[in-house]
């Protein structure tokens, strides 16, 4: 709520709840759209970065599929 009030306070003399018209809501919508756009663009990178950071901090190994022995010769020997 504070964020909204503060944002609106930057927009001019008419502050909520005094007036809610297109010219006051457009800047707010732009800001929200920019934030949403940022997350839509980079969400996967952010999640990946957060996961990597978490693993590094916790000292966990990377999420890599396990190595399996698949030499056909070894199989034949069995």
């Amino acid at each position: 709520m504070n964020l909204f009030v503060n944002l609106f306070s930057l927009m001019g003399p008419l502050r909520p709840p005094e007036y809610l018209g297109p010219e006051t809501l457009m800047p707010l919508a732009s800001i929200l759209a920019a934030i949403a756009g940022f997350f839509l663009l980079f969400w996967r990178l952010i999640v990946k970065f957060a996961k990597t950071l978490y693993r590094k901090v916790r000292g966990l190994p990377d999420e890599v599929p396990p190595e399996v022995e698949d030499s056909a010769e070894e199989e034949q020997e069995k």
Binding site: P65, P66, V68
Partner: peptide, 10 residues
Amino acid sequence: AHELAMKIGR
């Protein structure tokens, strides 16, 4: 597909 790779390898 990746969950499976994590269990059985690539």
